Computed example of a mutant assay.
Amino acid sequence: MFHTMLLLKELPTSGSLEKFVTRYPGTDISAISDFVSILRAASDISSALDALLARHGLLQGRWWVLVLLMRQDDLTSSPSDLADKAGVTKATMTGFIDGLEREGLVSRFMDTRDRRKFLIRLSVAGQRKLDEVMPDYVQCVTRFMNVLEKAQRQALVADLSTLASRVDLIK
């Protein structure tokens, strides 16, 4: 899901974390500190992506809808499939689609197999928008990711995948 992340800009100090141990015995300060650092990094990366897309008049939610549509062979998908793939509610996806449709970046049309449903298609203008943004996106993301060596990136992605597979431990 696309969420606004609200985190402290100032990470906790070891002194402030020690207060947790006093109040909540058994607290693993290292685990808490590492967790907050990962959240902070994710928030900073997401904010940087927001800034990059804003230069092109886009927000992340709308950007990902355009990308998801471009990935389809026929540039078409149902709103519910888009919502599932983006990890957002159908209502949130409807908002994204409404905005993209107003801007002429997607079109909505009746599903010929089930006239109760609509499909969403990437428009010519939507493809042009992607063609405008994608070189900047690719260049910036590549430059950012190349801060790490390929082996470091692979290890980081593997570690984050391991953590993501166990988010049930937080819920």
Rank of each mutant, 00 (worst) to 15 (best):
H3I: 13
T4K: 12
M5R: 08
L7R: 05
E10Y: 00
L11S: 09
T13Q: 01
T13L: 01
S14D: 15
S14I: 10
S14L: 13
G15E: 15
S16T: 07
E18M: 09
F20L: 15
T22I: 10
Y24V: 12
T27H: 04
T27E: 06
D28R: 12
S30D: 13
D34H: 14
F35L: 13
F35V: 05
S37L: 15
I38Q: 07
I38G: 05
I38M: 13
I38P: 03
L39D: 05
R40D: 08
R40F: 10
A42D: 14
S43V: 04
S43A: 15
I45V: 13
S47I: 03
L49F: 02
A51L: 07
L52E: 03
L52P: 00
L52F: 03
L53H: 00
A54P: 00
G57Q: 02
Q60E: 06
G61N: 10
R62N: 14
V65I: 08
L68K: 10
L69E: 01
M70E: 15
D73P: 05
T76W: 02
S77C: 09
S80C: 02
D81L: 06
L82R: 02
L82G: 02
A83M: 01
A83L: 01
D84V: 12
V88Y: 00
A91K: 15
D98S: 14
E101A: 13
R102Y: 06
E103Q: 14
V106R: 03
S107H: 10
S107C: 10
R108I: 15
F109V: 12
F109P: 08
R113N: 15
D114P: 03
R115D: 11
K117Q: 14
L119K: 14
I120L: 03
I120T: 09
R121G: 02
R121P: 03
R121Y: 02
L122F: 07
V124N: 09
V124A: 15
A125S: 09
A125L: 13
G126Y: 04
L130A: 03
L130R: 02
D131N: 14
D131Y: 06
E132M: 03
D136R: 06
D136L: 08
D136F: 05
D136W: 01
V141I: 13
V141H: 00
T142R: 09
R143F: 05
M145G: 09
V147A: 10
E149W: 00
K150P: 05
K150Y: 11
K150S: 14
A151Y: 00
Q154V: 07
A155R: 14
S161P: 01
S161F: 07
T162N: 12
T162L: 15
R166M: 09
V167H: 09
D168C: 00
L169I: 08
I170N: 05
K171G: 12
